[in-house]
Design a protein around this nucleic acid. Structure first.
Lengths: 130, 130
DNA sequence: CGGCATCCTCCTGGATACTG
DNA sequence: CAGTATCCAGGAGGATGCCG
C-alpha cells in the first residue's frame, strides 16, 4: 500500500491520538512492521540472543531468500535489528533485536491481547449464526 | 498482502508472544486495521459520537466512495463499527465505534508512543550522517 | 445523501536460478 | 553459508460513472 499522502491525515484537533499536520506515528510504526514477514521475523528474533541467516529461514516457514534478505535490511535500516558478520569461512552472519526492537514488544503484546479477544469474539459470532 | 498461510508461523515453543500452531492474534489484529484507510477512519470515529457518511468522507482526506464504503463494511463485519440507518428523506446514515472498537484504542496508543520515539530516533540518526 | 459497478494501474511478494 | 538477479502474478487501491 502506498503511504505517500496518508501520513498527513487531517482531523479536527482535540484529544485524539495524534497531532494534526504531523505524520501519524501509528501508521509509521505499522509501516515498519507491516508486510507479510516482518512480524514472523521479529518474533523469531525475540526469544533468541542471536540467530543465523539460515536458522532464521528455517524458522520462518515459507519465506524465500529474497524476502528474508529484504525484510532484514529494512528492519536494520529502521534500527530494530542488527546484523553481525563474522570474518570466517564458511561465512557466518548473526541477526538480533536491538534495544529499540525490544521496546516494540510491549506494544505488540497489547495488540496480541486484543487480537485474542477479537478471535474469540468472531468465533462466538460465527457460531450463533448456525 | 495475502495471509492465507502466514497465520500459522511455526516457532519453537517458549514464552513467546503467541502459541504454536495457532493463528497469530497480532497478525490477525493488523489485518483488521491494516490497509491504507482503516486507521484514519477509526481515528475519525474515535473522537466523535456518531459520524455521517459524507462527514467521514470529508474528514478522511483523499478517500474515495469506493474505499470508504469498503472499509466501513469490513470494520463492521469485524464488529469495530456500527452502521445506523435512519428512515428519512434524504437518507441519513451514521457510523460509530463499538465497545470492541474502543477497546482497541489503548493498544494503538502504545504503538503511537513507540512510533513517536521511532520518528525521533530516525531523525536524529539522519542528522548525524550530515 | 449514501452508496455500488466497472475498469485499470502499480506494487508487494513469489518462483527460479545463480554467486563469492 | 548467505545472499543477488531477473522475471512474473495477484491483489490492493484509484478513477470514473451510475443509482435508489
Amino acid at each position: 500500500m502506498s503511504r505517500k499522502t496518508a501520513y498527513d491525515v487531517s482531523l479536527p484537533k482535540g484529544e485524539s491520538l495524534y497531532e494534526r499536520d504531523e505524520i501519524c506515528p501509528i501508521i509509521y510504526a505499522l509501516d515498519i512492521i507491516g508486510g507479510k514477514w516482518k512480524l514472523p521475523i521479529l518474533w523469531h528474533l525475540a526469544d533468541q540472543e542471536a540467530v543465523r541467516y539460515n536458522e532464521l529461514k528455517r524458522g520462518v516457514t515459507g519465506i524465500t531468500n529474497m524476502m528474508l534478505t529484504k525484510c532484514l535490511r529494512e528492519l536494520e535500516e529502521n534500527g530494530l535489528v542488527v546484523r553481525v558478520q563474522y570474518p570466517e569461512v564458511p561465512p557466518r552472519v548473526e541477526y538480533s533485536l536491538t534495544e529499540r526492537g525490544r521496546e516494540l514488544l510491549p506494544a505488540l503484546n497489547k495488540l496480541n491481547v486484543w487480537g485474542k479477544e477479537q478471535i474469540k469474539y468472531i468465533r462466538a459470532r460465527g457460531e450463533e449464526s448456525n
